[in-house]
């Protein structure tokens, strides 16, 4: 049996001195090599769970293992195994895409030759070669999202966390990003993805987990979930399981 990309066991977490999201005895497993969607309404705990899985937050109870490495205890070198594409733009807008990729490439521990080769590959495949030397501050939202993604996959991670990677982009950029992510998955990268774009999630994800109020309320292959809950699409399933109450 292969090692899961993510294995969460009996996770307990709450923000100190804050009300809101808390996890109690949360269990979740993401098999290696799949495209996994973590979906839920605002405030359900998606981003918090993603921060816990990437080591940005520390948990006090339970276990999160990434490719069999306990996240709380692992040395920094294990961070080479995963990539993270945060919802916020995570680059220096005073620099160009090439300069950003050179900087983050060095932080991933890549050699100068690897950085150069990988930068050109990514700029090409994400349609950024011609603007590779322009300052990011002048870019459109779609171009910025593609650069944000390129930085996250610079080191060819085995697991890629994507927090709303296409929010605020046009159809063309969304198409390019989704197309690229599918190709990346075919090469063996596990995708763990959160989004409010349910059509996009339906198109991208093989397996989904629905999370609400810090609890996993459904977790299976998308087709199985739709069949089980007698729904035609993800939106109907989502509303059926999480209700129509506003969560903001």
């Amino acid at each position: 049996m292969s090692i899961p990309a993510i294995a969460i066991r009996s996770l307990g977490f709450s923000y100190p001195r804050q009300e809101g999201i808390h996890f109690e005895e949360l269990n979740l497993e993401v098999p290696d090599g799949i495209r996994f969607g973590l979906l839920g309404p605002n405030g359900a705990g998606k981003t918090t769970l993603m921060k816990l899985m990437t080591g940005l937050l520390k948990y006090k109870k339970g276990s999160i293992r990434l490719l069999n490495h306990e996240i709380n205890d692992h040395p920094k070198s294990v961070n080479k195994l995963f990539g993270f594409v945060p919802q916020d733009y995570s680059f220096y807008s005073e620099l160009s895409p090439r300069e950003n990729l050179a900087f983050f490439g060095a932080w991933y521990g890549l050699s100068r030759t690897e950085i150069k080769k990988r930068s050109e590959e990514l700029l090409e495949v994400l349609g950024l070669t011609d603007v590779g030397d322009r300052f990011l501050g002048t870019f459109s939202g779609g171009m910025k999202r593609r650069v944000n993604l390129a930085i996250g996959v610079m080191h060819q991670p085995r697991v890629l966390f994507l927090d709303e990677p296409t929010v605020g982009v046009d159809v063309q950029s969304r198409h390019a990003i989704i197309h690229y992510l599918k190709g990346l998955n075919q090469l063996g990268t596990t995708l763990i993805y959160t989004s409010h774009q349910l059509e996009e999630a339906e198109e991208l994800c093989e397996k989904v987990a629905l999370i609400d109020d810090g609890k996993i309320i459904a977790h299976d292959h998308l087709a199985a979930l739709l069949k089980e809950h007698r729904q035609d699409g993800l939106e109907g399933l989502f509303l059926g399981l999480t209700g129509k109450r506003f969560r903001d």
């Binding site: 990437t54 080591g55 940005l56 920094k76 070198s77 294990v78 961070n79 080479k80 995963f82 993270f84 945060p86 916020d88 733009y89 995570s90 680059f91 220096y92 983050f104 060095a106 932080w107 991933y108 521990g109 930085i151 996250g152």
Partner: peptide
Amino acid sequence: ISGSFIRLKTLPSSYLN
């Protein structure tokens, strides 16, 4: 407080750099 710092924290190198 920027997104770049969040990313730096998930990278294999130390923030001390």
